[in-house]
Design a protein around this nucleic acid. Sequence first.
DNA 1: TCGCTGAGTTTGGTATACCATAAGACGGAA
DNA 2: TTCCGTCTTATGGTATACCAAACTCAGCGA
Lengths: 212, 212
Amino acid sequence: MDSDLKIEAPARLRDVVLERLRAAIVSGRFASGERLVERNLCDLLGVSRSVVREVIRILEAEGLVEEGTRGPMVARLDWAQARQIYDIRLMLEAHAARECAGRADDTVRADLRAALGQIGGDGALEATARFYEVIFKAAGHDIAWEIVSRLNGRISRLRALTLAASDRKVSGLSRMTRIAEAVVAGDGPGAEAAVRAHLTEAAQIARKILEA
Amino acid sequence: MDSDLKIEAPARLRDVVLERLRAAIVSGRFASGERLVERNLCDLLGVSRSVVREVIRILEAEGLVEEGTRGPMVARLDWAQARQIYDIRLMLEAHAARECAGRADDTVRADLRAALGQIGGDGALEATARFYEVIFKAAGHDIAWEIVSRLNGRISRLRALTLAASDRKVSGLSRMTRIAEAVVAGDGPGAEAAVRAHLTEAAQIARKILEA
DNA sequence: TCGCTGAGTTTGGTATACCATAAGACGGAA
DNA sequence: TTCCGTCTTATGGTATACCAAACTCAGCGA
């Protein structure tokens, strides 16, 4: 890895706050519909309002925060929205997986296996994201990846609501392994089908949670 | 229209600036890759940095602005990106048109005709947006509409590059009329095909422009 | 002539101050 | 008791101030 030499850019306060706040919302630390009072967030995070406000704009664009009558609040998430998000992800990911399978070279295959291997470990969430990133980037679908990343913020909120997270993780891993196998084998239609199966299952679980 | 009674929310400076700056970028007032120096924008727009900075965050999320090494700059737009955007729009719009055709009621049909009727007039751009909004909303694809709206900012930049805008407008109108006709007739596959034809043509034009 | 250095300037990052408005509390009059 | 008006306060919108890093460029020495 040549990343050892990379100079890490000094972390901007904005990025840190963005990450924190996003995590807080995704993890359910703030309830759906709860108002995000700027000055409270400033106290909570120990930063000034400038930072908080800029971060709120970004989270608004991600759909995690929406404007209430009096100010920003945590976006509400219902099944109607989640269903749409899964539909969109399905289209974009299926397309990317198919194209990726058609053009994956050895580097891509190796990256895919590496990401898959880390999913069982600690940073499961990051590894999963990395897995998809490899697929999208290899397919030349940068913009689609950008979109899916943003949508993932909202989807991730669903995961936090799941109680039995462990068994789903296993299931998800096996599904993703099937995706990877199809991609590595250059089997476009198979990869697409695997993506479809994975997302359909995930959507079913989300539906059960949100309709309850 | 009962909208006569509606109290218009006091326009926030942020919204005005957002619109202005977006228009400036889309129209080519700022060159691709040009640095957006905050203090310059403040002078230009006559507002404070707080506002400018928040607006820049929003435009960043729209992909119209990207972070340079030293600060924000107007995003570069090449054919590789535009092609991806057209691909994504194709998927989302085709899907929406198909579903809209399957469930359009009289209200939707009327709205669609109204929007179509206004496209020839002054606010062609707004009317076009309204046309698609009707289709997406009627199909129950709010989130997809949100995504397409954002992507449209980038696509709109292409239009500004076109010299012969008039003949394309006519062509676009006839294509959109075909979409509307298929939707009104409840012809899902036909609507999808019309969308496909329209976007394919638009993509071809964009390609010619960007590869030159 | 080339290169180094240091002052000055630009620029983005961050914090704070001020203002207008709307919600909420409180009290008086019918 | 209820309704209305007023006062207080919370809150978001906007502007300004300050700082540190980095870029520029003149000046100086080898």
